[in-house]
Design a protein around this nucleic acid. Structure first.
Lengths: 232, 232
DNA sequence: CCCAGGCTTTTGGTCAGACCAGTTTTGAGT
DNA sequence: ACTCAAAACTGGTCTGACCAAAAGCCTGGG
């Protein structure tokens, strides 16, 4: 019909968001750089970015950088969050593990299918670092390390909804996740032997781009921990 | 807090609209006159007017005058916004189906395991009602009906996280879900034959309390629709 | 009378370059 | 290694110019 320049740019920005080129939390180019890079004036860029903000896709702060918002966040202010009681509740911990099992299974599935070579390389590097680190680390450090590995998998899935949900889920329910690990360590005395092998299986399935195997390995990894919990 | 000039102006414009100073169909001042009249630059005026347009309050045409729109109109077009929204993007629709596949699979799994007898009875009743209803219904009615069935399954799962997420997900992304159904109907001409049988399979698995079968049937049901989408 | 055709004016869309106001980064100097 | 102020970003606003589309005007032929 009547293709405005700013509308074109707006569509382009949305596309990069939908296709996962721009992850939640990522920074946009500065308006001046966009202006140059897209060959339009800064006014036009401002118009497009303004629409993005109005539609709730990005968060723009005077002086700061413009960031992609997590589109699930506003819906995630459940009264569940911080209360220490919930995170320590075994039933809730089980539920968190249930959701992790399906979420990480799907994430691994899509990552095996769709990750770029660079992402695979980064994942591989992170995995090797994780294997090398000694047993000297604190439980907290281990938990964070574990989460970073799984988060990297999620972010390589090129799946906007899975990424958004994973981000929120891991940050909101870190307490519950940490609580599980903490209890597991207390009962088995140390980091369960299976975990290491399971991480290996996930890693290998993804590297082989075997999506079904990756889903199964990732899901089984979480369910293994869940069974530990059931034996209490 | 941080009073932007353009935000101030935006508020003023909305005020004149809400108080009736600007009736539907009325013309706004030209941007140059506003600029002078409000004592801000035309850039700032454009920013504000742009937001008014983005929020659907006014209709601005290149070369023509900017007019106030009839505010009730958008509410009648609700599920099919013409501007490119997230819900209209095919890639996003696919992603929504991916998440539905895993979410409804899990929900069916836990419902088969944990639903009370009363919940099973209610589910059974809803299923029979759904089977009886004729083909006379609108697409929208079908979509709502479909969703109610799946929502009932989710709510019978006794799984706090799955319930909470399902609720948010279905309300937030109803547009995308509806869009899929609408497209499917357009291409196949009518309600796909498989759907009816699949609902039956889900229903039966849950009634038999066969959790694995229920998960598989529910997941497959969504993936069936997804394949329809891939063939476009 | 009108009303069809161009001509002029007015409107929104884009551009360039400048300056202000916050944030983030950098680099002493301790 | 730390603190903290300068410097180098970022987004917000202003100015004045030009282009393109719509609306208004105006004139000449029915």
């Amino acid at each position: 019909m009547k293709p405005n320049l700013s509308d074109d740019l707006l569509q382009q920005l949305k596309e990069s968001l939908f296709t996962g080129a721009l992850l939640p939390g990522a920074e946009l180019m500065s308006q001046r750089r966009m202006s140059e890079s897209f060959g339009v004036s800064r006014s036009t860029v401002r118009e497009a970015v303004g629409q993005m903000e109005a539609q709730g896709y990005v968060d723009v702060r005077h002086g700061g950088k413009t960031r992609v918002k997590n589109l699930l966040e506003p819906h995630f202010n459940m009264p569940l969050g911080e209360g220490k009681a919930l995170g320590d509740n075994p039933e809730f911990q089980r539920q968190v593990l249930d959701v992790r099992a399906m979420l990480e299974g799907e994430a691994a599935f899509y990552t095996a299918q769709r990750a770029t070579d660079d992402q695979l390389k980064a994942l591989d590097a992170e995995y090797r670092k994780m294997q090398q680190r000694g047993q000297r680390e604190t439980t907290l450090a281990k938990a964070k390390e574990d989460l970073r590995f799984h988060m990297m998998i999620a972010e390589s899935s090129h799946h906007l909804l899975i990424i958004a949900f994973s981000q929120l889920f891991y940050t909101r329910f870190f307490n519950a996740i940490y609580g599980v690990l903490s209890r597991t360590l207390k009962t088995s005395g140390r980091y369960p032997e299976g975990i290491r092998a399971q991480h290996g299986a996930i890693h290998q399935a993804i590297m082989n781009r075997d999506a079904e195997a990756a889903r199964h390995a990732a899901s089984e990894h979480i369910l293994y921990t869940r069974r530990h919990l059931d034996n209490d």
